[in-house]
């Protein structure tokens, strides 16, 4: 198992882990702190600590969840120290930044429609937006998102329903507004 190799001090295994997770974790940290340098430092620190204390890593049951929780906690601590107060219920009132999508050059949907969808996601309630981001951008399972954000799987499921319904409303409105552009091709 990969994690066992890291516990045993295998640098190659650690390298694979780093290359795989560090870009995603950087995006995740950035979505919270919104400063690139700070995000990068937070993620580096998490990997430095993991490598330093690799003998203890054997007790990690899900490395993916572990890394996201570690980054989330450090990012929130960073904001708390900057604001000189504790951030509680972090993603209920606290907005995050989404990653930009690539231009829809060879895609089925028009740039205009893509903008509509992005806007719908941008205006989701903060917690809902964070859940949607982790599921779609990071490809995390509901179970993992629930653990990372301290929620139940049912909450994640329900918030995803809200997100999809909001996007659906925007998309349907788009086609009602431009009836000539609908299904017919």
């Amino acid at each position: 198992m990969e994690l066992q190799q890291i516990v045993d001090g295998d640098e190659q295994a650690f390298r694979r882990l780093f290359h795989y997770f560090s870009p995603r974790l950087n995006q995740f940290a950035y979505s919270i702190v919104k400063i690139r340098e700070a995000a990068s430092e937070i993620v580096d620190d998490v990997f430095i600590k993991l490598w330093k204390q690799r003998e203890k890593a054997a007790s990690i049951s899900n490395i993916r969840v572990y890394l996201y929780v570690a980054v989330k906690n450090s990012a929130l601590n960073y904001l708390s120290s900057k604001a000189h107060r504790q951030i509680t219920e972090p993603f209920n009132h606290f907005d995050i930044a989404l990653s930009p999508d690539q231009a829809p050059d060879q895609r089925m949907i028009s740039a205009e429609l893509q903008e509509k969808i992005t806007a719908a996601i941008e205006y989701l309630p903060p917690r809902c937006k964070m859940i949607f981001k982790l599921v779609r951008e990071d490809g995390l399972r509901y179970k993992d998102v629930a653990e990372i954000l301290n929620l139940t799987v049912n909450t994640v499921d329900a918030q995803m329903v809200i997100a999809v319904k909001r996007i659906s409303e925007k998309v349907q409105a788009h086609f009602t507004a431009f009836p000539k552009r609908t299904v017919k091709k």
Binding site: D101, R107, I117
Partner: peptide, 11 residues
């Protein structure tokens, strides 16, 4: 539409 959007690569 959403499936197409969903799988778009992130910049």
């Amino acid at each position: 539409i959403l499936a197409d959007y969903w799988t778009a690569s992130i910049s």
